[in-house]
Amino acid sequence: MKECDIKLYALSTCIHCRNTKEFLNECGVNYECVEVDKLEKEERAAILEEVKKLNPNCSFPTLIIGDKIIVGFKKEEIQEALKE
């Protein structure tokens, strides 16, 4: 899996987002992580547009692995998606 294929939209204070990060680190994959709560207004609005397209509920974590979108910390689904 290429580095750019994994992107995580997270909140810095969210426990499920942290669990997702820890798990991705354990899996030893490279990923891009955006901490949405730390963004300034304009940047945040642009990122939220991205998130909405992937996850209409706009909840966190929203994780993209290739063409798979995983909402919430779901270990098995992440493992599955990483295999592909």
Binding site: L11, S12, T13, C14, I15, H16, C17, V36, D37, C58, S59, F60
Partner: peptide, 18 residues
């Protein structure tokens, strides 16, 4: 996270929501 949110926003907003 709750304490940070209180500092940032003035209220203890859920840490798992924006």
């Amino acid at each position: 996270g709750l304490l940070l949110n209180r500092e940032r926003y003035g209220y203890m907003c859920c840490p798992c929501r924006l």
